[in-house]
Write a protein that binds this DNA or RNA. Sequence first.
DNA 1: CGATCCCGCCACATT
DNA 2: AATGTGGCGGGATCG
Length: 885
Amino acid sequence: ENIFDRSRMAPKTPIKNEPVDLSKQKGCTPERNPVTPVKLIDRPQSDPWTPTANLKILISAASPDMRDREKKKELFRPIENSEQSDTPDSLQYDMVDDSTIDEFEKQRPSRKQKSLGLLCQKFLARYPTYPLSTEKTTISLDEVASILGVERRRIYDIVNVLESLHLVSRVAKNQYCWHGRHNLSQTLKMLQEAGEQQYGELMTFFQHKEQDLEYKFGERKKETIPDTQDRPSPDFSEPDCTSASANSRKDKSLRIMSQKFVMLFLVSKTKIVTLDIAAKILIEETQDTVDHSKFKTKVRRLYDIANVLTSLGLIKKVHVTEERGRKPAFKWIGPVEFPGKTDEPRGHSPTSDPLPQAQRGACAPYQICATGNQRFTRHASFNGAQPCEGTRRKVSSEPNSPRQERQACIVNSDKCCSKMINLAAVCRQKIEEDTRNPSVTSPLSLLPVPGDSDFCVNPLPQAVFPVVQADVPSLSVLNGVSSQALHPSTPAASKTENGKPTLLPNQPFLCFPSSSLFMLCGGLQENNLRETLPTTGEVQNRSAEALAAVPPAACQKRSSHECTSPSAPVDDEEPAAKKQTMEQSDVPLSLVVPKKTFESPNAGFTPGSGCTSAVHLEAFHLDLTSPAAPEAADKESTKPLDFQEQEKWSQIKDPDEPSPGKEHISKENANQPFLPQYLYVQPTAGLSSFNFLFSANQAPGAIGLAASQLPSLSIPCVVVPSAALASFPVVCSPAVTSPLSPVSDGSFSAAASMNFSMSGLASTPPVFIGTTAVVTPKVPPTPSVDPQQPAHPTLHLSPVLARSCGAVKLDSPVCMGHPVTLLKLQQPSSTPLTPKSIRPARHEAFFKTPGSLEDPVAWKKNEGNQTRNASSVQRRLEISSTSPD
DNA sequence: CGATCCCGCCACATT
DNA sequence: AATGTGGCGGGATCG
C-alpha cells in the first residue's frame, strides 16, 4: 500500500501544502501557539493509535499528501510540522522558516490542490481498481480522512458518489467496503436502463437529436406519468409510497443525484450533459419555480459529483456553445457499451426490460437508481429481488426503518413524477427565463401576436407555447380526410369554407398556456385535404391513433392511482384522451414512432407500475378525434378524462366546440372522412410541457377565425412542446399576415403565423407533427415561412409543411393520417415567434433560435453574425430564408 | 464577473 | 446525548 500511495501521492504538489500550514499559522495564530483545535487533535492522534497508524505516518511523511493534511488546522501540531520538514519538499519549509509571510501565502496551497477531485484521486489511489475477489478492503472514513488530511465531511462527498456507482458500499458506521470497478459496468448498465426510462425522452429533447428522438420515442414507455408538478406535492400522495412522510434528506442525497446525473450521460446520445440542464432535470421537486437559489445549490452539488466522476475517469469537463453562450458541460468518457446491453434503442420490449416487473410494480423501476439501495452491492440493489431494501443505515439495523420506506417511496415517486416534473420544471424554467429576460430567447417561448397577447404567452409562468398552425393542407394531412365541419367552430382554427381553406393571413401563432388543453377545429376542406393528401380513413385513423397524444394528465390518470397527480382529475373529462391513452399509451411521444404506438399500450398500464416510465409517451400523446365520431366518444366517454383543461376547453370550444365526442374521436372516427378538429393541448401536468394540437376536420365555419380574417387556418396538428419539448417545433401554417385577433376563446389566440419556434433546444430541429406517419424528413431548405407574408398563396399548406411534406412525401397515404407524424424540420422554417419578429421581420426572423427571444432586432443583428453563434438553427433559418418561399 | 467549489454550520439520523 | 451523516449555501478562488 505504501508504494501505492506513494505513487499516487507523488504527483501532488507537496510544496504548496506546507506553505499552507504556515500561512495558516500566520493567520490563525499570531503567536503560533499551537492551538490544537479539539477536533483536529483527535484525528491526528487517533491515527497513530490505529493499527496502521504507524504506517500512515510513514506514508504521510513520505508523501506530499500528508502535508496536505497538515494544512488542516490539525496540522499545526508541531509533530506534523516536523514531519513535513522531513519531507523533501523542504524548499518551502525553508521559506517558511524564514517566515516570510508573503512566501507562505504564495505557497499556500491553492484551492485546486484542495479540490474534491484531487482528494478523490488520492482516495482512489489508495485502493486497487480491481481488487481481488478474495480480499476485502474496508475503508475507515476517519482513517482515510486523517490520512488524506481532510475533514471527514469531504470524504462523505466522495464516498457517496462512489457508493452510487457501487464502487464501495457501506458496511457499518464509519466503515465502507471497497469493491473497485468490478461491478461498474453492470452498474452503469443498470443506470442506463433506468435512465432511459426516466430521462430518455428528456435528454432527447434536450439534445435535439432527431434521431434520438425518434428513437427514444419509439421506445415505449410503460407507464404513464403522473404529472406534474403542478401541484406541488401531491405527487406523493400515493399510498404506496408513503413517501410524503418520508422523503427527507435522502431524496436529495448526493448519491441519488449522482446516479441520476450518470443516467443522463448514459442516456444522452452525445454523451455530453450541460450542468444547467442536468440541474434542471434533477430538480425534481421544484416545479414551477425553480428558484434560482435552488438551482445554484443543485449546480454546486453537481460540481461535487462531477469532480468525483472526473477522478474516476468517467467524465471530463467540456464546454458547449449554445445560443446563449458557452456553457459548462461534462462529457462522458467512460464505457458506453455494456455487455448486457440492455438498451435497445428502439423498442424495448417489455420483456427485455432489465428491471423485473416486480420491481416496477412495487417499487418502481427506477428504484435502482433511486436509490437507496446503494448500500447493497449493486447486484442486490438492482435485482428485483430486493429492490427497495436497504438503506444504508439500515443494513445493520432493521429492515423497515422509516428510511427505507422513504426511499422506496421516493423511488416510486420518482418514477412516477419525476420525469414529468422535471420536464415541466425545465420547461417552465426555460420559459420563465425567456420571458423574463427578453434578451434571452428561449426557444420555447412564443411571442404573442399583438392581438393575441392575451392568449399568448404573456404569463410567463405558464409556459406558453406557440402553436403553429398548419395550413389547411397540413390539416388535411393530418386529418387526411376532408373534414366536414364537424365542429365548425373551433375557436382557433379558422376554417374556410369547404372550398378552400383560406389562409389566415396573419395568423401567427397560437400560444397556449402550457397547461391548457385545446382543441381546435379547423375547417379544412376535404377537398383540399384529400387532394393534397391521399385520404384514407384508415390512415387517418392510424394517424389519429398515433397522434393520439395522451396528455400527460391522461396518462397520469391511468396510472393515477399510483401516481396521483394533480392533474389526475383529468380523466373524467376527456374520454377521448383517455381512451387513446389507454390504447396507445405506449406511444411515447407518439409523434415519433409509429411502431409501437399501438401495440403495447398496456405495458405501461400496470396499475402499480403505471407511473414509472410511461411518462414520456403519455406526455406526448396526441389525440385525434374527429368530431364525427361520437361513437368513439362514447367509448371514450366511458373513461372520462378530467382535464383541468376542460374548463379551458369549454372556453375555447365554446363557439363550436366540438363536443367532447369529437375530441374523442378515435381512430375509428378517423375512418371517417372527417378529421378531428381539435387540438389537444395538454399542458400542465407534469409535462406541462407538451401540448399538442391537432386539427382535425374542421368545419369551415367552426373555427373560423372570424375575427381574424384568417380564413382557414386549420391547424393540423400542433404540437406544443413544453419546455422539454421545446425542442420540437411545431408546424406552421403559412404565414399569415394579419395577426389574428384572438380567437373567440382566446384560448387560442389565433395568431396567424404559424411558425413558432419551438425549439426549445436550440439545436433541435423543429418537429412537425404531421400527418404522415413518421416523417422525419428533413426538409432542407424550406424557406421559412413568412409569417408575415400576407396570405400565402399556398394557402393550404403552410409552406413549411407543404414542403416538408413534399419532401417527405407526405402525400403518401401514410402521411395522411397516420400515426402521428412528426416531422422534424430541420431547416424548417419555423419561425420564431417573437412577436416582433413576426411582424416585421420576414425572412429574417424565421426561425429563431431558442434563445432568440430577444427582440427581433437583436436577432437580425445576429443574422449578420450568424455564423458566429449561430446555432444550427439560426443557420438553418438563414438558409431557409433564402429559399424561395 | 461568472464559473467553481471549499468549507464548515447545523439539521437530522443513528448509536 | 453523543456521534455519524450529509444538506446546504456563504463566500473565496479561479479563469
